[in-house]
Amino acid sequence: MEKVLMKGNEALAEGALAAGCRYFFGYPITPQNELPAYLAKRLPQAGGVFLQAESEIGAINMVLGAASTGQRVLTSSSGPGISLKQEGISYIAGSEVPCVIVNIMRGGPGLGGVQPSQADYFQATRGGGHGDYRTLVLAPASVQELYDLTALAFDLADKYRNPTMILGDGVLGQMMEPVVLKPSEEIERPIPGWAVRGKRGGKAKLITSLYLEPEALEEHNLKLARKYEKMQQEVRWEEYLTEDAELVLVAYGTMARVVKGAVRRAREKGLKVGLLRPITLYPFPSEALGKLAERARGFLCVEMSMGQMVDDVKLAVCGRAPVSFYGRAGGIFPTTAQLLAQMEKAMKH
């Protein structure tokens, strides 16, 4: 297979094109700018539409409109912009319209900085906007995964009629790695029956999140809850040297790569440690962690935040083993030596 050297943000864009996405609406924000720049060139060549909106609010509502016609639609941003998109994401989830939303995370809160971060985990995995809803959340850890998981994101969005979020970080978006691209093929994707395209001889259709009758709104919420339950089967994760691990580290995205390197070093030093890397953050690999909790003596969650995913790790481990946490912020990655020190500390407990 031929490999191409690509930037993460561009690989994601290429993955979207390969998945048959022809519509992009967005607003500039660092560190995801290479993605719209790439699509601004490529989408018109592919017969699609690239539109720079007046704001993230404008962009997400254009996504709602375009995706309601049954097409595959993409938008991308970073933390502050994703906050603005949350209103629209809530409506899209409530109206059960599939689309893919990319968050190449930067540090917050507020304007924060433009360096990589994982501080939007709560926002991504708890819905993020108002009302009871969830988005599927994928967490790539390499440029290849940015390409591959983008196709999966569109498939899952279609399968569940639900927004899917790709949660990356600034390093992942900006770094270059070799990528194996799929041979290009025309995707035959029929327009779904629920799409609004003018009734054209059929019955009028409505895309809405409005249910004024209490019973109807409760029924809608119960239906969504059943859907989220069904989504649990999509859980994906990677385990590394966990078979005999006494301490299991849990990390996702770029941080998982740093941790993997540290786990390798720890093994060389004779420490029985392993890594569980969630690939889907929603659904979260709780069962896999629960199984490891039956024999592991402890867990160490490492994040580029002050501790968010660690809450889900604790829920999954459910008191069967101690869960410790190590986090960095501001775009700072821990060194291998620092991680080794954290592992030794956790194993002493």
Binding site: L64, V73, G88
Partner: peptide
């Protein structure tokens, strides 16, 4: 946001 939604529909 109605006009932004309308823009999305019309572009697609």
């Amino acid at each position: 946001r109605a006009s932004a939604v309308a823009v999305g529909v019309k572009r697609a």
